[in-house]
Design a binder for these strands. Structure first.
Length: 926
RNA sequence: GCCAAAGUGGCGGAAUUGGUAGACGCGCACGACUCAAAAUCGUGUACCGAAAGGUGUGUGGGUUCGAUUCCCACCUUUGGUACCA
């Protein structure tokens, strides 16, 4: 006899997971007549804490879509792998000496077992691990392609470096329109050929997409490595929260800025959440304007500024240059020298963090120099201030205090003149409604009277005619730093021959990580790889930094297409068949990191002819985060006493995170708590009503807060099917929400009720072959329609509701008919695969339900001949009346007006108006 | 500060194009079964009111026969961003 009991669930679920594995039902073929569908999850970093209930949220959703698409006749690729290089394993290695590979492998094994228990339809034969040499061989290979490429603005794509060299041989760099370093000089073919090997390579580095350069980097001393901009949050490292400072260093970089415009335009072609697109747009930060020269009043030099508001040039009352600007020293006058030097010194030593926390503080110094405004020949003073950044534009701005809030604040603070140049209702900077992009020009010579947009164009033309500047587009996005002074990452396929960086031969890939004695920098401050003994290539030293975490994840979706290929990163056929990812599910925290870098690498690989699509991920969905509910106990400061939640106001207390497994509701299990740690053995508790009540707060689910809920426990208690459906039932996929198990019983009961539809009171399987009634068919087809609609719209919480409604209705009808239950079971299979295959087998099918066909709903069963109209009076529903759907409006109106209830409200008078919306509503206006 | 998303019962949430607000589930209450409890099943459950009725989707206004849905202003929460000229 088979109840849907705890024991039976365990038996069923294990039975099917074993059967699926043994039969290889999730193996995906690269050859098929069926249309392809590629569903991808953002692969996890395998942390030591294991999977918590938040991780599977997106995986369950993608698994439902995968299974649904398969039932719909698609050949579905649904792989999983691991982003296995990363800092935590290395930090652990530094502390314990344990090789990060061992930690990582152990964690991956845990993850796989946890994932297996939830019944995902991953094709594990396609698993990738970024730290596996057979994988990072190809990460290195792609790096080599990037090293051997430059960006040609004429064709607007990356080109082989050999082609650039050929041009340099022939004509120097004249006529080359490339994205390259700013200070790249113009050279002739003669100069080029006169270069020695080192000079040639140094010159090429200014063009390569992967290149070495002295750049300002975010140096994190505590982690002993540099970090990319997206790894730094609020001046501290995103992982660990250590301070970060800006220093100059020779580093590997990626010329992602070359792709700024294409990365921006591509956003309009992909189906991604608008907030993510917006974040990428902001990150790219395009601004259109011009650069123009201001001559110094003494005629010695010119200072070039970048502005987007050339229309306001008559309002320029001073100029500001960055403290790091190259002309600071030169133009500063003798009597201002001390002030300026002092200021530069302070600005230099202010850490990034201080600068950020002191955004509101206004500081600066006058250089003593003046420049001439080329439009009106007026003399304006030149200041230095750290609100002007050296790295953006030209590091100099023409200050217009009447239309820029920062310039305004600066002018107010130092008592500098302000000249209004815009006139309009929102053009006054002293008013709250100030809007810089509004109004028409005043006090602006021949620009007077023009709206600001037209004034920009006219002023631009004048700049061009005078030959003092050019139109210019600037991007906020910088090139990405690509090296890390760490051990646990991909080694570069690069060695140094007399200081010249060279690529290893392709046949010598992969360059594997050498074994070292300790996972920290050398005594001389070199990266950990400096410890490797005899680690050379043909007698030359290797590059000692490793690639950043995002290297391996910037192309992994291609590897899944053909994961075992030893000759190519993926075969041409596999790439041609799978093309790109149809659905990508993951967290929005990757908006400006992984998702941008992946688009970048994809575009380079497309330019070089390796892949076909311009964009890697056609549709993206951000799943929300499941937060943890932390439990708090309150230690009375300086004592070994803990006070219960509601009494804590009377004491000075420090909250302590308590392991959530010690707490039932709000009540602390005192014994477990005391036995938790040695320092808690002898504590004294101040109770309320004889209990210790804990406080709660919502935190990230993390080991650190002792609030992690493990999916294994949920699977043991309720089964994987219940866990899967419950996570979907919690609410919309995109929403973040704290984990609580309050509603899980409801989902469990639903599955049992569903099971019971197939069984009699004694638990015997009993399904009848009788013809279903029209009502039963209506329930069935209504459900089929709704479930299909919901899956197509990624609204899984409402599908679970619909299943519940359907099973409630069929239970009430005591329907156990095969013709109804069988199609219903197929629609449930993507959500609850274990119970589905079990019942499918009991229905007499030899093959798994995965190979069934998703049933089509039939509108015929859903059409009604009549409708129960809500009759509202002045918009409030008062009564319901049933009318045939084809009844003429006039007849409905007569019957409604004549009805007792309406008569009561109208008091016999004729209503002002009667609105009848067929099939929807009747509204009587009185 | 700026950009984006979101505010609906005791709780999670539903309402697909402007058309019955609160589906579904949890919780709670009552009832059945039971010596009893658990489990299970059934009934009820936005708020005020005995009822008639009234009030209700963050707040205030507007458009409309009709607004959770559209428009304007504001408040709150969450995420992103940090002087980008």
């Amino acid at each position: 006899m088979a109840d849907y009991s705890k024991e039976e669930i365990k038996r069923i679920e294990e039975k099917w997971r074993a059967a699926w594995q043994q039969k290889g039902v999730y193996k995906t073929d690269n050859h098929s007549d069926k249309p392809k569908y590629y569903v991808l999850d953002m692969f996890p970093y395998p942390s030591g804490a294991g999977l918590h209930v938040g991780h599977p949220l997106g995986y369950i959703a993608s698994d439902i879509v995968s299974r649904y698409k398969r039932l719909k006749g698609f050949n579905v690729l649904h792989p999983m792998g691991f982003d296995a290089f990363g800092l935590p394993a290395e930090q652990y290695a530094i502390q314990t000496g344990q090789h990060p590979r061992l930690t990582t492998e152990k964690n991956i094994a845990t993850y796989i077992e946890q994932l297996r228990k939830i019944g995902f339809s991953y094709d594990w034969d396609r698993k990738v691990e970024t730290s596996d040499p057979s994988y990072y061989k190809w990460t290195q290979w792609i790096f080599m392609q990037l090293f051997n490429a430059w960006y040609d603005r004429n064709t607007n794509q990356a080109q082989p470096i050999a082609q650039l060299i050929a041009t340099l041989d022939k004509q120097g760099n004249a006529g080359i329109n490339a994205v390259c370093d700013d200070e790249t000089p113009a050279i002739s073919a003669q100069q080029w050929s006169a270069f020695n090997t080192k000079e040639k390579e140094d010159f090429l580095q200014k063009y390569r997409i992967a290149y070495l350069a002295e750049t300002m980097v975010n140096w994190c001393a505590a982690l002993g490595t540099v970090l990319s901009n997206d790894e730094v949050k609020d001046g501290v490292s995103e992982r660990g929260g250590y301070p970060v400072e800006r220093i100059k260093m020779l580093q590997w970089n990626m010329r992602i800025a070359a792709y700024a415009e294409r990365l921006l335009n591509g956003l309009d072609t992909i189906d991604w959440p608008e907030p993510v697109k917006e974040m990428q747009r902001n990150w790219i930060g395009k601004s259109v304007g011009c650069e123009l020269d201001f001559k110094l009043a003494d005629g010695t030099d010119t200072i070039r500024v970048f502005t987007t508001r050339i229309d306001t040039i008559y309002g320029v009352t001073f100029m500001v240059i960055a403290p790091e600007h190259e002309l600071v020293d030169k133009i500063t006058t003798a009597d201002q020298r001390k002030v300026v030097t002092d200021y530069v010194e302070i600005a230099k030593n202010r850490s990034e963090r201080e600068r950020m926390s002191e955004v509101k503080r206004i500081s600066g110094a006058f250089t003593g120099a003046y420049v001439i405004n080329p439009f009106n020949n007026e003399k304006v003073p030149v200041w230095i201030a750290d609100y002007v950044l050296a790295g953006y534009g030209t590091g100099a701005v023409m200050a217009v205090p009447s239309s820029d809030t920062r310039d305004y604040a600066f002018a107010k603070h130092f008592n500098l003149p302000i000249v209004d140049v815009l006139e309009g209702p929102t053009s006054d900077i002293t008013k709250d409604n100030f809007e810089p992009k509004s109004g028409s020009m005043i006090n602006s010579g021949d620009l007077n009277g023009l709206p600001w947009q037209q004034a920009i164009e006219k002023a631009l033309q004048r700049v061009e005619t005078l030959g003092i500047g050019v139109r210019k587009v600037n991007y906020r996005m910088r090139d990405a730093i690509f090296g890390r002074q760490r051990y646990w990452g991909e080694p570069f396929p690069v060695y140094f021959d007399n200081g010249i960086p060279k690529l290893v031969d392709e046949k010598d890939l992969p360059v594997t990580l050498p074994e070292i004695d300790a996972y920290k920098p050398t005594e001389t401050g070199e990266p950990p790889l400096g410890r490797a003994k005899d680690w050379t290539y043909k007698g030359h030293p290797y590059e000692l930094t490793t690639m950043p975490g995002w290297a391996g994840s910037s192309w992994y979706w291609f590897r899944y297409m053909d994961p075992k290929n030893e000759k190519e990163f993926a075969s041409k056929e596999a790439l041609a068949y799978w093309k790109d990812v149809d659905l990508y599910i993951g967290g929005s925290e990757h908006a400006t990191g992984h998702l941008l870098y992946s688009r970048f690498w994809n575009k380079v690989m497309k330019d070089l002819g390796y892949v076909a699509s311009e964009e890697p991920f056609k549709k993206l969905i951000n799943q929300g985060h499941i937060q943890g509910i932390s439990k708090l106990a309150y230690r009375v400061n300086g004592t070994s006493k803990f006070v219960s939640h509601n009494l804590r106001k009377d004491y000075e207390v420090t909250p302590l995170h308590v392991d959530v497994t010690f707490v039932d509701g709000d009540v602390l299990d005192v014994e477990k708590f005391k036995n938790w740690r040695d320092d808690l053995k002898n504590i004294e508790l101040i109770l309320e009503d004889g209990k210790y009540i804990c406080g709660s707060e919502v935190d990230k689910m993390s080991k650190r807060y002792y609030n992690v809920v493990n999916p294994d426990d949920m699977v043991n208690n309720y089964g994987a099917d219940t866990l899967r459906m419950y996570e979907m039932f919690l609410g919309p996929l995109e929403l973040s929400k704290p984990w609580n198990t309050n509603g899980i019983d409801g989902v469990f009961k639903f599955l049992r009720r569903f099971w019971n539809l197939f069984h009699d009171n004694q638990g015997a399987f009993r399904v009848s072959n009788d013809e279903p009634t029209r009502d039963e068919l209506k329930v069935l087809h209504k459900t089929l329609k709704k479930i299909e609609y919901d899956i197509e719209h990624f609204s899984f919480n409402t599908s679970v509701s619909e299943f519940m409604i359907c099973s409630n209705e069929l239970s009430a009808m005591k329907c156990n008919k095969r013709a109804v239950l069988e199609p219903l079971l197929i629609t449930l299979a993507p959500f609850a695969p274990h119970i589905a295959d079990e019942l499918w087998e009991k229905l007499g099918h030899a093959d798994t339900i995965l190979n069934a066909t998703f049933p089509k709903h039939n509108e015929e069963y859903l059409t009604e001949s009549s409708f129960e109209y809500p009759i509202s009076i002045n918009g409030k529903v008062r009564v319901k009346m049933n009318f045939a759907l084809d009844m003429p409006k006039d007849d409905i109106e007569k019957l409604v007006i004549a009805s007792e209830i309406v008569q009561k409200w109208t008091e016999g008078k004729a209503p002002k108006k009667v609105i009848i919306v067929p099939g929807k509503i009747v509204n009587v206006v009185i």
